[in-house]
């Protein structure tokens, strides 16, 4: 959308390797909100190391799809297997998957009553039972990685939106996830702060993280993604490599969507 104004930095693709190992496998998945059919027959296989951008008009079910992957939303039909564990009603499985899958939200969802450092060490200490000192070292490592180690003892309310989102990314990384989900991570940010968050995400992609991003940042999609998925009305309409997807969209719905978001 703000494609030109916030062009992310150039990308080093040398480490971005897609392995044969399957990270997420979704088969014939359906979901309803009450009687409203939000997700229809979703089939999606994500390999370890893939960077997938999911786009589509609002209400198309893209956020709901990635929220199903870590069971923030419950699916009613079909099968979701994450890292070899099937999502079922068993709470133990759900907690296990959630601790392996990191997630960043549109509104960051940092814990305002804890400092940045405490936000980052909380889950490692309580879920992974990491000793406090070790958890703090890990947290500082990742805070340095997202370039805000000097804010460690502040509270989230004292940081800018972009800083908060980077903290949220660091907080997820502290759990050493194998997969990262991004739910419109830059939509609530001022244009000037979008770039710093995108740069962090690019850095993550360069290190080979498996990523699923719901985003409208088409520049990011072009540069980083190895696959772009277009969704509408709860279905996957089209998926392709970014070059093909942007330059040669197949379905009319995709063409209309792309003309609307790239046309100005």
């Amino acid at each position: 959308m703000t494609d030109t104004a916030t062009k992310p930095r150039s990308v080093n693709r040398s480490q971005m390797k897609v392995s044969d190992e399957v990270a997420i496998e979704i088969t014939d998945m359906n979901k309803w909100f009450g009687t409203f059919h939000v997700l229809r027959d979703i089939n999606l296989t994500v390999n370890q190391g893939e960077r997938i951008v999911i786009c589509g008009p609002s209400g198309s079910g893209k956020s709901t799809l990635i929220r199903c992957i870590n069971a923030l939303e419950e699916h009613q039909q079909g099968k979701i297997v994450v890292d070899g564990t099937e999502l079922s009603n068993d709470l133990k499985n759900i907690d296990k998957i959630r601790s392996e899958v990191g997630m960043c939200f549109q509104h960051f969802n940092l814990f305002p009553h804890l400092t940045i450092l405490e936000n980052c060490t909380l889950a490692p200490i309580w879920v992974r039972k990491t000793p406090k000192r070790e958890a703090e070292e890990t947290a500082m490592y990742f805070l340095e990685k997202v370039k805000i180690p000097d804010q460690a003892n502040k509270y989230p309310g004292q940081l800018s939106g972009g800083q908060q989102q980077r903290v949220a990314i660091a907080r997820s990384l502290c759990m050493r996830p194998r997969i990262m989900l991004f739910d419109e991570p830059t939509s609530a940010l001022d244009p000037e702060m979008i770039k710093e968050v995108l740069d962090t995400m690019i850095q993550l992609a360069e290190e080979g993280m498996t990523m699923l991003c719901v985003t409208h940042e088409m520049g990011f999609a072009r540069q980083v993604a190895n696959r772009v998925i277009f969704m509408d009305a709860g279905q996957i309409i089209e998926q392709n490599e970014p070059e093909e997807f942007f330059n040669n969209p197949q379905s009319d719905r995709t063409k209309l969507f792309l003309s609307q978001i790239l046309g100005h």
Binding site: A71, L72, V101, F105, H107, N109, F111, P112, W126, V127
Partner: peptide, 30 residues
């Protein structure tokens, strides 16, 4: 409390009592 706080806690793999004790109740009680 915003729903995002519950979701933030869930997404990190905290179980029900942990998220209540560490995230939800400290803020709700405040």
């Amino acid at each position: 409390l915003p729903r995002g706080q519950y979701e933030g806690a869930d997404s990190l793999g905290l179980n029900y009592w942990q998220s209540m004790q560490l995230i939800v109740l400290p803020q709700a009680l405040k």
